[in-house]
Design a protein around this nucleic acid. Structure first.
Lengths: 219, 219
DNA sequence: AAATTAATTTAGATTTAACTAAAAATATTT
DNA sequence: AAATATTTTTAGTTAAATCTAAATTAATTT
């Protein structure tokens, strides 16, 4: 059983690992947790003895499968509580983080099972981030091109399939960025262009070619 | 701002104070908290410097008005969470204590405001204990004689109005004690006697005189 | 490749909240 | 009221989680 502090370190390690980095450094963690490097060194030694991370002096840490499972359960709890706060208690999505940071450490498996049921098994939190399931599995978001979406669907931009500077500049101009919420309004039969609404602003048309190069996932 | 540990001490002091004791002793607290007396001495010194209790060596402690307000707010949070767990998450009333012990320490005034609203401003928790209001006021339970109750009401014994040994012995024999749950079934017109059910056991009749001397409150 | 800079670890200190053992104060019994 | 027992406090330790300062290792520059 991990202490609250250990849980927070593990969560930070998980998040940093997922940002592409393999081998999370002491300084990255110190930074993320607003703590001194020396304190981090102490704690990662402790976490390593608990087999939730692997650690080699001066080489940074990597999360183990056991550690990942624990981290994902904490994230599951965090995101379920965020859904509760927004859906049931009428908080704004940007007000809930600090409260969920506290609630995620409450210990009771039954509580989380019942909360999940009460919220009708949500698959994403209010920020659009996926909620790991009971077994610590993250549903892999199905990637779709905007061109493939059905009218009416609310999607979130997760990637682009083209790194051409002209293309990226175009996206920027129409207001599309990673994480933007896009509602598909209509597909034009004639030329395959698509009418979309970005972040609830007035709708715009994008060409078929553009719509094929923006990857989204169900929100 | 009190630490989680300090909050737990303060709550224990509040509860012990309310059991009639004025001057909560070190050993009572050690007992209640499953802690050694020496540890308690350390902590009460600390709480005294924070002006939430008053303390004189070897004389025990008393809660201050400031301390009482904080204790009541913790109790408010505890009881609101219990209502949430039972009413919304379908827990049994006897399963919720440990979880509420954790939830009561979550820090966010807005959260508790919203939770209160979501639960439709309950006045008692699932054990029938009153929930302090935002200002730390406990609704004073209205005392009634059993003789005055309407049939169907579920009440809880809070006092007796007679300290005659014979009377108390009679109460003991029929199974009435402070805290007992009493359901009033019927009042007999003829002689004013009352049929009641005590703690869900088979019903008994008590005389008008007995019914006038047992004070209960709405459960 | 030597020198310099940056990152990391070690060593030792601090704070919080616990503990044990011994001393001191208070309460109870004879 | 002395003796005994109980309660409470003091003194000194321990463990967790932090810190600073110094030492060590790794990375970068010249």
């Amino acid at each position: 059983m991990l202490s609250l502090t250990e849980e927070n370190y593990l969560k930070a390690i998980y998040h940093l690992s997922n940002d592409g980095t393999k081998g999370v450094t002491t300084n990255m963690l110190a930074d993320q947790l607003s703590m001194r490097a020396a304190s981090v060194t102490d704690m990662i030694k402790k976490l390593a003895t608990k087999d939730v991370i692997s650690y080699e002096k001066y080489k940074g840490v990597n999360i183990t499968p056991a550690g990942k499972k624990i981290a994902l359960y904490i994230i599951r709890k965090h995101r379920l509580w965020e859904v509760f706060l927004v859906d049931k208690l009428k908080f704004q999505w940007d007000e809930v983080h600090d409260i969920a940071e506290q609630l995620e450490h409450i210990k009771s498996e039954l509580l989380i099972k019942r909360l999940d049921e009460f919220l009708d098994y949500p698959s994403v939190d209010p920020h659009g981030d996926p909620i790991p399931d009971e077994h610590g599995e993250l549903a892999v978001a199905k990637k779709l091109q905007i061109a493939e979406c059905l009218p009416g669907q609310l999607m979130q931009v997760i990637a682009v399939d083209n790194s051409d500077a002209q293309f990226l500049k175009h996206l920027d101009r129409i207001g599309i960025y990673l994480g933007a919420k896009v509602k598909v309004l209509e597909t034009v039969e004639f030329d395959g262009s698509v009418e979309i609404e970005i972040d609830r602003r007035p709708s715009v048309y994008i060409s078929k070619q553009t719509a094929e190069n923006i990857l989204v996932t169900e929100k």
